[in-house]
Design a protein around this nucleic acid. Structure first.
Lengths: 161, 161
DNA sequence: GTCGATTTACTCGGATACCACGTGTCCGAGTAGCGGAGG
DNA sequence: CCTCCGCTACTCGGACACGTGGTATCCGAGTAAATCGAC
């Protein structure tokens, strides 16, 4: 079970964008260069954020990406779901219904007990993710490393030509 | 982020084995036929359970697999880790250290805040899995579907020649 | 000097190859049980 | 009748192909800005 690395990229990008003025758009090439990421592939992840309504894109010169809403309104779960999709990691294929061990002789069983247990755990994971927002991360970073926010702003803000 | 379906197979197999006498070995071909699973591939998963110390295998005729310890001592996390491996889904690649946004000008940052947040969520997931055992599942199934345990026993116990 | 059309350059967006891991399969090593021969 | 030996058949175990999804890349569509010319 491996999470796409695009999630890490997306989270860092959201965090960096949170340090800027909210209506300032940053082109993908700058966001990529910031962490030496492949630009074209990062664009793909950013588009996923746009589709999910987390970020918005503005085309043309001086265009780029920006957060679509306040960092306080963006949970880590939102970002993870935007990149990884909505379906859960454990997927019950209902193998218990198949074969001689299936419900043929026992009638229709309502819920797979194993599936319920696995869903329970994954729900705990989702709740833990939903409880933390990009703003929380930004606040923690600003407290632990006060120089980071200004450095990000200086490097990502529209360069002085 | 997709979990291997082998996890589902392994969980169901552990559950079925939990219904039997603990020292009774069931060959892989029977466990596979029980849910119409490909025998050879299921064997691979069972071997993983053996390597993890969850199940034990006995070779030769009348051989097969059995649980290595009591169902109360087997958590869902044990099974998931046995199949999926120990490393977590979100892996921090430390991209924050790379590129102009890295710690070059800010000194060595101790912990990646994003990584900490993601680990926190995954820890909640692991704890939720560790809190549930195969015995719990078996008990729930026995309560909701009383006919299942005896059916499993009849189908998996050493057939009358 | 001001307004407007045109050009230009820059951005996103989706369509297209490549690669690794999970999926599926096979054959060989090892062992317990069974049968037969001998005592 | 009991014991020992050899054989057989059945099981696990690891080594070998295949397919799907993630990874990486490219080129085209669209747009805002800058430029040039006319008024």
């Amino acid at each position: 079970m491996r999470m796409s690395e695009g999630v890490e990229w997306a989270l860092h990008c959201c965090l960096n964008l949170a340090f800027l003025e909210q209506d300032e758009a940053v082109p993908a090439v700058k966001l990529a260069a910031f962490h030496e990421l492949p630009t074209a592939y990062l664009t793909k992840q950013l588009q996923a954020l746009v589709r999910a309504g987390i970020a918005s894109s503005v085309p043309g010169p001086r265009g780029g990406f920006r957060l679509a809403r306040a960092p306080e309104q963006i949970s880590l779960l939102d970002v993870v779901v935007a990149i990884e999709g909505t379906e859960q990691a454990f997927r019950c294929e209902e193998i218990r219904q198949r074969g001689p061990g299936g419900g043929a002789s026992g009638g229709i069983q309502v819920a797979c007990t194993i599936d319920v247990a696995m869903r329970k755990a994954e729900l705990a994971w989702r709740q833990a993710l939903a409880a933390q927002t990009i703003a929380d991360i930004a606040a923690t970073v600003g407290r632990r490393y006060p120089s980071t926010p200004v450095r990000v702003r200086n490097l990502l803000a529209t360069a002085p030509a």
